[in-house]
Amino acid sequence: MHAENDMSDVSLSSPYVELAAEVLGLLSDPTRIRIILALESDEELSVGALAEIVGKKPSGVSQHLARLRMARMVTTRQEGTSVMYRLVDEHAAALVVEAIRQAEHAVAIGQIPPHHHTPAPIEPEARS
């Protein structure tokens, strides 16, 4: 198990359980999930670019970004008259990716979810 996926140091009595619930609630909006994925892919984007990518109006995307910024998931940088947004760290993207993988499992109905790689069949060696 990878150290970043090790849950042995997280307990039921962690003082961060309530805050974690708030983070998950904040990420429960599809537009915010798309914003996180877009920022994970492109590293830094303006409101206009994000609005185009997620298919929403810039004013709505700006409101979502404000909430993500208040939660310290995104940060900004001024570039001329534009404000550029980026993820603070990799954790928000990791949460979103894991949630999508869980969703794939939920609808897989006994099949192998797309994120699981099936090993290629081993072909027997050609005999001379």
Rank of each mutant, 00 (worst) to 15 (best):
I100S: 14
R77E: 12
V54E: 12
P124N: 09
I109Q: 13
L24W: 03
I33C: 12
E22G: 15
S8Q: 03
V83C: 04
P114D: 05
E18Q: 12
L27F: 07
Y85W: 15
A3G: 09
L24C: 07
S28T: 10
E4W: 08
D42C: 02
Q111F: 04
Q63I: 13
D89G: 08
Q78E: 09
L24F: 14
D6I: 14
S11E: 02
D89V: 02
A38T: 07
V97R: 15
A21H: 11
S14I: 04
I33R: 15
I35S: 13
S128E: 10
G60L: 10
N5D: 13
L68E: 02
V54T: 14
E98N: 09
A51K: 04
S59E: 14
L24M: 11
A126E: 06
P121S: 02
A49C: 06
E4F: 14
D42L: 01
R32F: 07
S128C: 01
A3F: 02
R69P: 00
H116D: 01
E40M: 03
L87C: 07
S62N: 08
E90P: 03
L12T: 07
I100W: 08
K57Y: 02
V107R: 05
S14A: 13
L37C: 08
I100C: 13
E43Q: 06
S14F: 04
L26S: 11
P124Y: 05
T118C: 02
Q102S: 09
Q102D: 11
D42N: 06
S128L: 09
E98V: 06
L65P: 03
L26Q: 15
L27E: 11
K56C: 09
S41M: 10
L95T: 03
R101I: 00
E98W: 11
V61N: 04
R72P: 01
L12H: 09
R77D: 13
R34P: 00
A3V: 02
K56P: 00
E79T: 11
M70V: 11
G80W: 01
E44N: 01
V88E: 07
R34D: 12
A108R: 00
A93S: 07
G25T: 15
S28P: 06
G60N: 13
I35N: 10
I53L: 09
T75Q: 10
H2F: 10
D29E: 14
P124R: 10
K57V: 13
P15V: 14
S11M: 06
V61E: 01
E79R: 13
G60A: 13
P121Y: 04
P124W: 02
R72S: 11
I122P: 00
A126S: 04
L24K: 06
D89P: 01
R127A: 06
R32E: 04
S62I: 09
R67M: 02
K57F: 00
Q63P: 00
M70W: 02
E40A: 05
L50C: 03
G25I: 13
P58C: 06
L65A: 04
V54K: 08
H64G: 03
E104G: 09
V96I: 14
P119F: 14
